[in-house]
Amino acid sequence: MVKITVDGKKLETEEHLTVLEACLQNGIFIPNLCFLKTRPHPHASCRLCFVSIEGYDRPITACTERVRDGLVVKTDTPEVRALQRSAFKLLMSLHPCNAKLCPTEKPCLLMRIAKHIGVGINPKPLERINRGLPDFVDFGSLYYVPNRCVLCARCIHTCRSINKRPLLTFAKRGIMTMVAYFSSGNDSEVCSNCNACVDICPVAALLPKSAFINFLEAKETHA
């Protein structure tokens, strides 16, 4: 066991854990989107889990730092919050929140993060970016909603570890980067419809087609 201090609280945690895991296990919330316990190497892409650790001159991501004895962590310094808010606003500039039409359970993870770090869910002062992407993309038995996706890659990792084959992947570059599906034309051969990707998605960017039809109906009623 290892002793660490988080926000003045003394914790005892297992060795080999990351700071993020140790905090989450002890009920201390640190904003995160791309973290997955099953990943052998931290993806470290969402850039939300910044913490301040004594001995470092700048905030570092909690998912990439392992616990060790005597580590002193602060999760809410002004520098940490500034970076988290900046990253969160960037994400929200691509994620037009439409709570009424969004099938996530409320409050969704993004709302929780917004509340935790003390910002609204709008990207101000940044402007919204319209990438001109379609509302949804056909992924065989699923639909993918690119404007909701935060590219945490949880679906990609989960699908690969369950199916032992890469069915989902990243495609394109820069701001146009999105998740794509390798289709062989005969989808029943490829996707096992396990829906693991749907369950792991924090922002409902992947939906089974049946659920999507309900969603479209709801949208029409709403309109």
Binding site: S45, S93, I129, L151, K172, R173, T177
Partner: peptide
């Protein structure tokens, strides 16, 4: 840099786009 960003992390993928815009 925006076009060549791999799109993995938030700051580079979206941040550079805002700078560019």
């Amino acid at each position: 840099t925006q076009k060549e960003s791999c799109g993995k992390c938030t700051f580079c993928r979206i941040g550079t786009k805002h700078l560019l815009d």
